[in-house]
Design a protein around this nucleic acid. Structure first.
Length: 333
DNA sequence: CGACTTTGACCTGCGC
DNA sequence: GCGCAGGTCAAAGTCG
């Protein structure tokens, strides 16, 4: 993973196993749970009667569990349940749920370690982390193009920046449902696999999930079909980026507007998502697979800051494996 | 007219 | 303090 700042990838159907061996004390399950709740909370709504788990006979999730799960991400009650179809299809490993209070305490402890711990320890074990001081807890999700349009929240773009080390710019979105909502989303395209987009969610929504997206007004604009032109290097791309008014650049932004493939994805998904955003949670036989909505097995990887920090400590061995093989070692699975 | 995208400028944190 | 890089602002233009 030469240029990609994100140093780790994990597949949702694989992280269940052996992650303790791979990542020590890093709680990957926790990150994954958080990401799912953060981005796709409706997956957890009123579906407890359908939750399934391959290794237990208990299918019921207590209401208290759900309340606990929502705490970190909602200041208001969750919206009504998703469609019955979605309910039928959703399968969630109950063992992935966790106690957010414990999580909060652990996060705080980690933060304390991170910023007030021994400098010698951290500097020796890992390269200096370039973290913004006010950086909030964030959740990183990898999705494909379809996954981009599967987000039920209404996002409004407020900026785009070329990112050092990446040939693709990063787009910045804020929640447009409510002006007071501090939720943010960053979208950038993976350097190693242009079909993968990295979504980074920060802050949390302070309002219920919209039943309809109110951000569709601009989604059909700029539908000038231009063959995506992959920039050859960062500097070239930067020029293109800043001079591209009127000409589309293949970027996380224009992807939603100009790519023909994305056009189709969006047009189809825009229709579907008003009734049901998430109807494809799947279980592979024998595997405990939690599918992101409308995202295939290969399309979704979720992880958080703690995860990356742990990997940095590991020296990037795992990430180099992915960059060279585009596959995940079994040790991740 | 309202909501959107685009994009240059500006702000802020961090390393040196 | 300076420079770099990430993040945000806001004006301008577009679209339904």
């Amino acid at each position: 993973m030469a240029e990609w700042g994100l140093q780790a990838i994990i597949r949702p159907n694989q992280y269940d196993h052996q992650q303790d061996d791979c990542f020590g004390s890093i709680d990957i399950k926790k990150e994954y749970d958080q990401a799912l709740l953060f981005c796709f909370p409706h997956l957890f709504e009123n579906n407890h009667h359908d939750y399934d788990h391959a290794t237990t006979t208990t299918n019921n999730m207590q209401a208290d569990d759900l309340n606990q799960l929502y705490k970190p991400f909602y200041s208001v009650p969750p919206p009504p349940a998703a469609s019955a179809d979605a309910e039928d299809d959703i399968r969630i490993n109950r063992h992935r749920f966790h106690d957010p209070d414990q999580e909060t305490q652990r996060d705080q402890a980690q933060e304390i370690k991170k910023f007030s711990g021994s400098a010698s320890n951290t500097s020796q074990l890992a390269p200096k982390l370039k973290k913004r001081k006010n950086q909030q807890k964030r959740v990183v999700v990898q999705v494909t193009a379809a996954g981009l349009s599967s987000d039920p929240w209404a996002w409004r773009k407020y900026g785009q920046k070329p990112i050092k080390g990446s040939i693709y710019p990063r787009s910045y979105y804020r929640c447009s449902s409510s002006k007071a909502c501090m939720a943010r989303r960053q979208v950038e395209q993976s350097c190693t696999d242009s079909s993968i987009y990295i979504l980074t969610y920060t802050a949390e929504h302070n309002h219920p999930q919209p039943t309809r997206r109110n951000s569709l007004a601009g989604i059909n604009r700029n539908r000038v079909k231009v063959t995506p032109k992959s920039p050859t290097n960062s500097s070239d791309f930067g020029k293109t980026l800043t001079k591209s008014k009127g000409s589309q650049v293949h970027s996380p932004t224009t992807i939603s507007a100009s790519s023909s493939m994305e056009d189709e994805v969006l047009q189809q998904s825009n229709i579907k998502e008003e009734t049901t955003f998430y109807n494809k949670c799947d279980i592979n036989q024998g595997h405990d697979t939690m599918m992101m909505p409308e995202i295939n097995d290969e399309e979704c990887m979720v992880f958080g800051d703690d995860f990356f920090e742990g990997l940095e400590d590991l020296g990037g061995e795992s990430s180099s494996y992915y960059s060279s093989n585009k596959q995940f070692p079994n040790v991740f699975c």
